[in-house]
Design a protein around this nucleic acid. Structure first.
Lengths: 345, 345
DNA sequence: TTGAAAGCGCTAACAA
DNA sequence: TTGTTAGCGCTTTCAA
């Protein structure tokens, strides 16, 4: 079988459309860009020529003069535990996409898998393919923010970036949940329930500020909690299950646990059930995120710290518009959380 | 807080680099593109100027003359049940990204959420932002293939596209697993085990050819299976669990089930356990995909039809290169499957 | 081995 | 309301 689908030899240009409709390139350009001062009759004629020729504007040419692409990059580091499969990220990304779409901008998602990817992605971002970027889950000491700076590309970060000493990251805009405050609410609730041995399953607090902040919130309330009651996991379901197991081994008498994400909490619930603990009678469980797909369908349903994740995504997009379009938008934003009581605590 | 990070007022151009290093634009261009016939000394001088100025080539300008972008779009429809969270897709996408990266090409992921997205994505694809596209999980009757045709963009489909009558989709390249053959192997295995009431949980066979083909494979072997033994689901874990439940209600005496994806199979196993059926003693279970994350960690481990999912992703990228770079590559490919025996059957 | 000049397809003054 | 003209920043002949 031969190649049947090949690129057309020459795509029609403005010039072709102009010739066909008997006007100048400028007029065609005006029609394409919906500029008002063109006679209706001419508009029709041009439109007709456009469809007949199957004309699609060459964005590279347009970009070259307007310096705008109408595209926004979303850059995500794909860690060992698949970011991609995380419902939190899915939800956040949906928010970003929707907000961008409502502004007529195209979201393009780029991944950073291997170290080699950095150079290529940096070239892409610096090459004028996009008007701005939203950046996620960067590792501490990541070179990307610095690259972004050099390039001079408007950017917004998902989550408060982890600072290296003397870093300039505070100059970057970000959107984050009130992780510390939310964690505090969660743990205070457990305390108010009369629980006395309150453990916590944390995220990778050396890698992500969200994890560090949630742990800090736990410690804010439980100033003198035993270190045995803290177990670090990786924001995956399996990680949550394993961490719960370790906690039970170490502290069989624990009567509550604050798990730093719903996904991990669902794993923890599984472990608790397998090990014969009743929830919430024996062990009260509070999660974090309030992802509908998870928190409402666990058994029992999860008491958890609510974040408006899709809203955070939208907010990130809006902040970015603030930086590309000079639309009114605050610099960085910390989104409030609230505790949602369900069955698990 | 004022905007601290703003785009540089003017990014350095070739011209700037040329002036700074005392050569012509052509020479700088040659250095950038690693052309051989430039004096080593000059190369150094130019390179130096480039780093000093922080010069990054303007891709739009380059594109305008070369007609190449070095970027490939991956377009995915986000169905109601999050494609994004499907480990199969995650794995396939990883294969595509890796293969592209090895060719120095940048993968950019676009989503098709809302109907409105079509026009924007079509503009993007037609606007010369990318050299080609890989397309996934299109709905039957999707307008995108037609748009791609009109645009004349090289494209490869993930999975055999579902034809509408009189459609031209056969002209498009695709990569697919041997769904029908694999399903046949799975069911034949169950038959060889002496199972007599073999049910199947299918994917959305009216939407995806993979689901239709796997069902066809089941029927190839079980010519006169009762329709009661077939239950349609949606390729999600929960869907698999529910379908299994329905099957058990209808046919309590079933002794085996072929589940058309590992994710659904893991749900089915959960249901079987909850309903007191032992696997494989009471009910033998075979899955499809052989995703390491799932098949090896279910209880019992899943006997399943293996597909080299990451390899399929890579293959898609290679096919696309065949269409954009005239690299040798076959037209469409059907990748063989094989049965992997583990504990569940 | 290097430079000059043309032109990719578009937008944006400026004139008409 | 429309057309003319001059670039945007790069690659690519062609000459030197």
């Amino acid at each position: 079988m031969a190649l049947t689908q090949r690129p057309n030899l020459r795509r029609p240009t403005l010039e072709d459309v102009a010739r066909k409709s008997g006007v100048s390139k400028s007029t065609v350009s005006r029609v394409i860009n919906d500029e008002p001062k063109v006679r209706a009759e001419v508009v029709d004629r041009v439109r007709e020529a456009i469809t007949e020729l199957g004309y699609v504007p060459n964005q590279a040419a347009r970009q070259l003069v307007t310096h705008r692409t109408n595209a926004i990059a979303v850059v995500a580091t794909e860690p060992d535990n698949r970011l991609f499969l995380d419902p939190f990220f899915d939800c956040l990304l949906r928010g970003i996409r929707r907000e961008l779409a409502e502004h007529g901008a195209q979201a393009v998602l780029l991944f950073l898998d291997e170290p080699d990817d950095y150079a290529r992605v940096a070239d892409y971002l610096g090459g004028g393919h996009v008007d701005g970027a939203v950046l996620f889950s960067l590792r501490p000491g990541d070179r990307l923010p610095e690259m972004i700076d050099r390039i001079g590309l408007p950017a917004v970060f998902g989550g408060r970036p982890l600072l290296r000493d003397g870093d300039t990251m505070h100059r970057h805009a970000y959107v984050d949940g009130d992780n510390r405050g939310g964690a505090r609410q969660a743990v205070q609730h457990l305390v108010s329930l009369g629980r006395e041995r309150i453990a916590t399953v944390t995220g990778p607090y050396d890698q992500e500020t969200s994890a560090a902040d949630r742990l800090a919130g736990y410690r804010d309330v439980l100033l003198d909690a035993s270190p045995d009651l803290t177990e670090r996991a990786d924001y995956t379901r399996q990680g949550g299950a394993d961490a719960m197991s370790a906690l039970l081994d170490r502290c069989p008498d624990l009567d509550a646990v604050f798990v730093a994400s719903d996904l991990m909490a669902s794993g923890a619930l599984q472990t608790l059930r397998a090990r014969g603990r009743r929830v919430p009678e024996d062990v009260a469980v509070v999660g974090f995120d309030d992802l509908a797909d998870i928190a409402e369908s666990t058994d029992p349903p999860l008491t958890t710290v609510h974040q408006d994740v899709e809203g955070m995504g939208r907010l990130m997009a809006r902040l970015l518009f603030g930086r590309t379009e000079r639309i009114e938008a605050p610099p960085s934003v910390v989104v409030p959380t609230r505790l949602v009581l369900r069955g698990s605590a």
